[in-house]
Amino acid sequence: MSDKPRIAVHKFSSCDGCQLAFLNMGEDLINLAEQVEIIHFAEAGPVAEDALVDIAFIEGSVVTAHDQQRIKQIRNNSQYLITIGACATSGGIQALKNLAADAADWPAQIYGQPQYIDSLDQSGAVSDYVKVDFELWGCPINSAQVVELVNSLLRGVSPIDHQDKVCLTCKQEQIVCTLITQGKPCLGPVTRNGCGALCPSFGRDCFGCYGPAENSNTIGLANRFAGLGLLPDEIQRRFKLVHASASENQRIIARDLTQDLAQDLAQESSDE
């Protein structure tokens, strides 16, 4: 047995897009394969789900009773457990069902034979079930994040948790602000950077796929969106898309915005 660090990449409920951050590394994938032993990575070939490893990467959210058992077993088998992507880190797009009052009725509405569907009524983040040592945010994550993280772990250095806002990247790259010049409801001011401000670089407003940044003032931004003319339902939808379960976004989603905004307006007119 080699003395190289042993890694595993596990998939839960997800689209597989974050695993591509490994497969799309190019030359670095060869470098990676030379420096670590890839024990389990079904999408790339090796399968040994129950092996003991140094680092386990988890893609996907926990949505079945079987997932709950699997994630606990993987935790027991791994020295470090790292979530990759929105699903594993906050529950992902499928966590939208956590918001629905009638989620239990959905399988019958969607599938011809719903009795074969065996899912929990919530899509859970991995950290809801086991201790997570580090989280890579993004939908999907990119290869640069993986390279930097693996590098830190190989050298025994604490990885840097990049949690500044997308706006800093926009300004560094001279990307013109879509909120200021077009009045678009950009989530950049509350979203983690790491994507290279991909959407704003094409003139599109950020929709928050990298998740809440440090000190995310989502309430302040929601009020600003109201000022830009968005209706309460439109504002809440902005914060629901990829990270509906993140607590910062819940501050907007769980509020009765219609009532709050009406109160704010009443307050403003009484001030005048």
């Binding site: 500044d164 001011p189 509350v190 000190n215 309430i219 302040g220």
Partner: peptide, 9 residues
Amino acid sequence: AERCLACGN
């Protein structure tokens, strides 16, 4: 502080 997004723009 209620309005500021600490975005650094």
